[in-house]
């Protein structure tokens, strides 16, 4: 690991100012992603700004009837907060499906959104990687790519975003609040992460020096008809191969509103508004769910090791929509899929 200087920030302004002044400075919160990457020499910040003492650790009511999650609230605190469990059980469930109790005790709202891909080549500085070193190539496209993307890939990068939390937030249409030298911005989560395109080195639309202050959850938490279905190589403590966050509003057996977000399949939580519209006003039938899945996956492209994800995603979408419609969300304890 490289040497760095350390600052324990005492105010948001100080943290922002210090970061803006130094292009190689990084904020550190839970540290569970940044320290990992530093140990592999993938990240080599010369200055670390510890933001864990900043007052960004509360969960508060918003004026519109939603909740505001501070950037430093830990994933464990969020997942087991009674307001989150009552009003946003989809978010609680997705967080519980991720990482381990120890990691969730450290991981924060902001850090989770900003965690980087788990692509094997990205993690290994001995290999080329466009995301780590722009212009060097993408060995994953022709190499090992079991965990890689099937949607929204580019010739430059086929990595996925690994977060479970962000997938639930995408379905809930959360808003990420950031503050930077240029002032405050509210970024809809759909516009927060980006597709790799020609610039896979850029994961999201934040600017250097900006700090996430909170994530706002809109009032509608779809707390009756939801599920987070995560499929992976072992039942716990593993990243998603495919995950589906489904949130429905049911009226007299018909779907009045639908939200679907997929994890493990793209460079960002994957949403398809046209597919969601196909559910609106429809009865909850498996035929309909299959048509929706086909629509979402019509442009999916499999690579050498991950073509199985297309079928897996298709079945996961149908199962998740059935679970959500019947009000029987996937248990994150008993892993059997019903």
């Amino acid at each position: 690991m490289n040497r760095f200087s350390y600052l324990r920030a005492t105010s948001i302004d100080e943290a922002m100012r210090e970061a803006a002044a130094d292009p190689t400075a990084r904020f550190i919160a839970g540290g569970t992603n940044l320290i990992d990457l530093m140990k592999y020499n993938v990240e080599r910040p010369t200055r670390l700004i510890d933001i864990t003492r900043l007052p960004l650790n509360g969960i508060e009511e918003t004026e519109s009837g939603g909740l505001r999650l501070g950037a430093l609230v830990t994933n464990d605190e969020t997942a087991f907060d009674s307001r989150i469990q009552d009003r946003y059980p989809l978010l609680a469930s997705a967080i519980q499906a991720g990482a381990s109790p120890q990691l969730r005790n450290a991981a924060t709202t902001g850090g989770n959104l900003l965690q980087r891909t788990r692509c094997y080549y990205f993690y290994d500085p001995e290999t080329p990687c466009n995301k780590r070193e722009p212009g060097t190539g993408c060995p994953a496209a022709f190499g090992r790519n079991r965990i890689h993307a099937i949607l929204g890939t580019s010739d430059h990068c086929i990595a996925t975003h690994p977060s479970d939390m962000a997938v639930a937030m995408a379905a809930l249409q959360a808003i990420v609040h950031v503050r930077g030298p240029g002032g405050e911005r509210a970024i809809p989560i759909a516009d927060f992460h980006r597709l790799p395109g020609e610039h896979p080195e850029i994961d999201n639309t934040m600017l250097h020096g900006e700090i996430i202050t909170s994530v706002e959850l809109p009032p509608d938490g779809f707390s009756r008809n939801y599920t987070y279905l995560k499929l992976r190589d072992r039942l716990s403590y593993a990243f998603a191969l495919v995950s589906v966050a489904a949130a429905l509003r049911m009226e007299n057996g018909t779907i009045a509103q639908a939200r679907l977000a997929l994890g493990g399949v793209a460079h960002k939580p994957w949403r398809d508004p046209a597919a969601e519209a196909m559910l609106q006003g429809q009865p909850a039938t498996e035929d309909r769910f299959r048509a929706v899945a086909d629509h979402i996956l019509k442009d999916a492209r499999g690579y050498q090791d991950n073509a199985f994800k297309i079928d897996l995603a298709r079945r996961a979408i149908v199962t998740a929509l059935s679970q959500a419609a019947s009000g029987t969300p996937q248990s994150q304890i008993d892993k059997r899929i019903q």
């Binding site: 350390y6 550190i28 569970t32 320290i35 990992d36 140990k39 510890d50 120890q102 990691l103 450290a106």
Partner: peptide, 29 residues
């Protein structure tokens, strides 16, 4: 593992379990 992947390094910090391999000591002042 030294990378948060096994739990062998688990300790209790302010009563909560954490992976001590994924924490800088200065941050736990």
């Amino acid at each position: 593992c030294d990378h948060g992947q096994c739990g062998a390094c688990t300790v209790l910090v302010d009563g909560r379990r954490l992976n001590s391999c994924m924490a800088f000591a200065v941050m736990k002042d």
